[in-house]
Computed example of a mutant assay.
Amino acid sequence: MIMIAGGAVSGDSKDAHLMHLDGAAESLLLFKADVLDTLAAAVEGCEGVFHVASTVPADKIVDPELEVMVPAVKGTLNILEVWSSLEVQKVVVVSSTDAVHYDPNWPQGKAKDESC
């Protein structure tokens, strides 16, 4: 198993718990990477990949399109192109609830969905 971590590498406190998973010492490799850069070295030889990363700005978002959507789409396209060129057989792309929490004008109490 290989994990590509945007802000963490093996030994960082942020990812230290991962090394306690069953079999991690023998089969878990951690890479620090940016989805806007090439990831070929990290996924070369992999048969399947889970893409769970997305941009989550820490500060107030002034321009959601520019600050969240553009890097998220560009990053996902970048890694899909890399995985396609390396002939990865299975790719699973997921998101998080953070993807729908950025509309400051969303009505209080209204359920959040893809239109948010």
Rank of each mutant, 00 (worst) to 15 (best):
V93L: 13
G23Y: 00
F50A: 14
S96Y: 04
W106A: 02
V68P: 00
E87V: 10
A25P: 03
D15N: 09
F31V: 04
S115F: 11
P107A: 06
V73G: 00
S27M: 12
P104T: 05
S54E: 15
V62M: 07
D63M: 04
V88I: 05
V68K: 00
H101C: 14
E47F: 05
E87M: 14
D15H: 08
I2L: 12
D15I: 09
G6K: 07
D12Y: 02
M3E: 09
S84K: 14
I2A: 11
G109D: 03
L30M: 08
C46D: 04
F50H: 15
N78I: 02
V35A: 11
H51Q: 08
E81Q: 08
C116W: 09
A41Y: 04
H17P: 12
C46F: 02
E26G: 09
L77W: 04
A40G: 05
W83E: 12
A53L: 11
M3N: 06
V82L: 00
E44P: 00
L36E: 01
Y102G: 14
K90P: 08
V52D: 09
L30Y: 01
V68L: 03
M3C: 11
I2F: 11
A111W: 05
V68T: 03
D98E: 13
S54M: 15
D59W: 06
L36I: 00
G45F: 06
E114D: 13
S96Q: 07
A24D: 00
V94T: 15
L36M: 03
E114A: 14
N105P: 00
V73N: 01
L39R: 13
V49I: 12
A72G: 14
G48A: 15
H20S: 13
P71E: 01
G109N: 07
D59A: 13
G45E: 09
Y102F: 15
P104W: 01
G109M: 02
D98T: 14
A111P: 13
D34Q: 01
H17V: 10
H20F: 09
E47N: 12
A25G: 05
A25K: 12
P71A: 02
S54V: 15
H101N: 14
P107S: 06
V9F: 06
D12R: 02
V56G: 05
D34M: 01
S54K: 10
K112H: 08
V100K: 05
E44T: 11
D37A: 13
V43A: 06
P104C: 03
Q108D: 13
M19N: 08
N78H: 08
H51E: 03
G7Q: 08
C46Q: 13
D113S: 08
V43R: 03
K74M: 10
M69Q: 10
A72W: 03
G109A: 02
M3S: 06
G45I: 08
K32H: 07
H17E: 09
V92N: 12
S115C: 12
E114G: 11
P64D: 01
S115N: 12
F31Y: 12
M69S: 11
V73Y: 01
N78L: 02
